[in-house]
Design a protein around this nucleic acid. Structure first.
Lengths: 338, 338
DNA sequence: GTGAAAGCGCTAACAC
DNA sequence: GTGTTAGCGCTTTCAC
């Protein structure tokens, strides 16, 4: 382990000069800077983050992510990957915390581990961790919008608009009865923010267009998906337009429709809110509002970095939904509807 | 931020005493310990990991995990979750590094970030990171077995035995022609350890039983799974026993079989090497060798902790495969085979 | 524009 | 059984 004093000796300067060359916090003559940087390179020196005095940068940020079984792993991992990649591009590493460490976990990390800031995924409308986050002496960025966002920095897809956008699209195609296939009931019970907003958007748009609407929470299993498909088709009036906000059942649900009868999109139009590649690679490519995991993660990191740099950051960053029409939606043709 | 000196003052002792109460590295009188611990609690003190002298414990370990798109996210996340949980139970946090930071990334973290040890997932037979890992001044545990494991600590399911176990099971049921549906070709090209071992075990057991055998690498897409299913059924002799070592195609592959004709298990027996819950929740519950992600992660952390404590650790920990018979395998009934 | 020196919070000899 | 003290590697006053 080569240390700052080694570099200083090698370059014939004092340790503090090396430190300043690295931080740029005071002007250094061209000549000296070059010598120091040469020494740094030849010795392979790297400042050891742990040795920084408390309060200084550790170049580590904490990511609180849901790791429980119910989560849609591919989506969660996309978020995590984008956060890690973005963080690295700013020279930071990422410490992961599980959701279920809760408030205590946040406090522990902030107090105990050298971490510059936090990114929190999967927030609930009234998340018990909010007070702690507000109290922390470190900046934090939430992926998701709690009900009371005073004093917090949040970023996420505009899920309300996403829900509306799907219904608008279906209404434009002439559908008069729509249904939302949402996440499992427990997600609604926990009042996970994005689920609530999609629901609001869906309902609001359906009412605005005067559509018949129904909501079906659905467990993340193939069996539940099949049961939901059957229930949907038995309804009166049977919906001809579906919005799916549950990545796990996308596959089995469309599979079940294929088996049960209604052709997609001729007799049944399906839209989804999910990562774009999932929608593309479905048996019938799905018209969808993209869940921009990569962009969201990147934005969260950018916001955190700006906060760390002392720059002012917008309290809320809502990403506008983008609906891409693929093969799963079409103008309504007879049957169904009110 | 309350510090150790605050606690010391409050308890009327010296900082070192507080430190020793915390670490237990020297005997403390019952009386003093109690006073100190009371002060710790009332002041809400937590030792700040970052301030520990270099070489000391940071209570952080690094987990190098594959985050590229091709990975089976649910499986990867299971590993990660078990490592994080186990680490927490030892009072450690987990820093994630992506696979593609490669050798340089390992070096960077070891030099730069206060990390006590490393856990490396998804190792290749001749992994370029091995020399770095051996050189590091920190203990590391690999999940997976490279070809040359001198000086390394490894833990993993015994994939070779797992491959054998599946074939043995099929042979016992009277199947005479078997096929392995493996991970995508690029996984074999990278010579990912577990894929190689399964292949070896599969081939060895097939030869030992005198079975006809074939190997089909398969992309992790539903389309590729369907194509593979068709190809399998067209072979002469058509295999009547299948080993699937590719979680992503489990679903679409069995789906395709169901559509193409051969009934499972009456005409075609299917075994898988995958997490147990995946096998259980398949349309036809699959006979499988469990991929014990939870146990593997736990073991890796245990090994690392023992190494950190200076205890000797076994260089290799092979987890014995456990085959659970479910509904997807049965005694061979006429047709197919040699 | 640069150096010397005093911390940062914690640990571990070294004393008694 | 406990206190004193000298570090750890780095940053940041303060002084020139």
């Amino acid at each position: 382990m080569v240390k700052i004093t080694d570099v200083a000796r090698h370059a014939g300067v004092s340790p503090s000069t090396v430190s300043y060359v690295l931080s740029g916090k005071r002007p250094i003559s061209e000549e000296t800077r070059r010598r120091v940087q040469a020494s740094i390179r030849t010795l392979g020196y790297r400042p050891h983050a742990g040795a920084r005095p408390a309060g200084g940068r550790a170049n580590v940020l904490a990511l609180v992510m849901p790791l429980w079984a119910g989560i849609h792993a591919p989506t969660a991992l996309r978020f995590a990957a984008s956060v890690v990649t973005a963080a690295r591009s700013y020279g930071h590493d990422v410490l992961v915390l599980t959701q279920d460490e809760g408030e205590e976990g946040l406090r522990r990390v902030a107090d105990t581990v050298p971490v510059d800031g936090l990114i929190v995924m999967d927030v609930a409308l009234r998340d018990p961790r909010l007070p702690v986050l507000r109290d922390l002496d470190r900046p934090a960025v939430l992926i998701g919008f709690p009900a009371d966002r005073a004093g917090l920095t949040c970023v996420d897809l505009d899920f309300r608009a996403a829900g509306e956008r799907c219904v608008d699209h279906l209404a434009e195609l002439g559908h008069r009865a729509v249904a939302l296939v949402g996440p499992p009931p427990e997600v609604y019970v926990r009042r996970t923010a994005c689920a609530q907003y999609v629901l609001q958007g869906f309902t609001a748009a359906a009412d605005r267009h005067g559509l018949t609407s129904a909501v079906h929470p659905c467990e993340a299993t193939a069996a539940a998906a099949r049961a939901t498909a059957e229930r949907l088709l038995r309804e009166h009036p049977a919906p001809t337009g579906i919005v799916v906000h549950n990545e796990a059942v996308l596959e089995p649900l469309t599979e079940a429709f294929a088996r049960l009868g209604p052709r997609v999109p001729e007799e049944l139009s399906v839209t989804a809110i999910c990562p774009a590649d999932l929608a593309e690679s479905a048996r019938v490519p799905l018209t969808s509002v993209a869940l921009p995991a990569a962009e969201t993660g990147l934005r969260a990191v950018e916001l955190l970095m700006r906060a760390l740099a002392g720059e002012p950051v917008p309290a809320t960053t809502l990403l506008a939904p983008v609906l891409t029409v693929r093969g799963s939606t079409a103008r309504r043709t007879g049957g169904g509807g009110a």
